[in-house]
């Protein structure tokens, strides 16, 4: 092979080749759950990306999974935006879990999806806002792709929580959550830079 081409392929971190997938390491943010970190490429939540969590219903431990991350972020005095949460967030419980509610902002746009998309995009682009959680079921792929770009600009993570699975979603990481007695089964549906589609059981301190 042409030596110039060779060096380009080897030195450019943006080019990913299937044959040496071990080399591709996108450093992730530790999720705080060792079992999960071992499964996710990069050893944690992806940085600057969009992630999807598909759960059949709310209340399965989806927030518990994100708790350590939210704790770290508010300790760093960066902001978290919640978009259209399905219920009222219970402040005492979240504070008990170590989240500084001073850095959590919740927006509840009325029915218009456009406003919500726009808000998510703006928040992802804002550097001070490190995490955006959005409870939205209807998200066209084009919008997800756009949000992905916004997350890269703003160096932030966007988490989309939804009931329905969209196989063709361009999100960087897609997880399916399934309840269990002692925690939650996390099935990796798609992870950028990895073939390992496996599931893992994460123990959560439920009570």
């Amino acid at each position: 092979m042409n030596s110039q081409l060779q060096s380009l392929l080897e030195n450019n971190p943006r080019i990913w080749r299937a044959k040496d997938r071990g080399r591709y390491i996108e450093t992730g943010t530790p999720s705080g759950h060792p079992q999960l970190d071992a499964t996710l490429p990069g050893g944690g939540w992806p940085a600057n990306a969009i992630m999807e969590m598909v759960t059949p219903q709310w209340g399965m431990g989806e927030l518990q999974l994100l708790l350590p991350l939210m704790r770290t972020i508010t300790q760093q005095k960066r902001w978290i935006l919640w978009v259209s949460p399905p219920y009222v967030p219970y402040a005492p419980a979240l504070e008990r879990a170590g989240i500084d509610m001073d850095y959590v902002v919740i927006i509840q746009p009325d029915d218009s999806c456009k406003d919500a998309f726009w808000g998510i995009e703006k928040a992802l682009q804002t550097r001070a806002c490190a995490l955006v959680l959005a409870w939205m079921d209807w998200l066209p792929n084009a919008v997800v792709r756009r949000l992905q770009l916004a997350a890269e600009t703003g160096n932030s993570l966007g988490v989309l929580l939804r009931h329905r699975d969209n196989e063709h979603s361009p999100a960087a990481l897609r997880l399916h959550l399934h309840p269990s007695d002692k925690g939650v089964y996390v099935k990796v549906l798609k992870a950028r830079g990895s073939y390992r589609y496996r599931s893992v059981h994460v123990n959560l301190q439920l009570h």
């Binding site: 209340g59 927030l63 219920y87 967030p89 219970y90 419980a93 979240l94 504070e95 008990r96 009570h207």
Partner: peptide, 14 residues
């Protein structure tokens, strides 16, 4: 408050 020390859910119904 001390409430924070007790076991509470993250979601509350309105």
């Amino acid at each position: 408050s001390e409430l924070i020390k007790q076991q509470r859910p993250f979601w509350l119904l309105p």
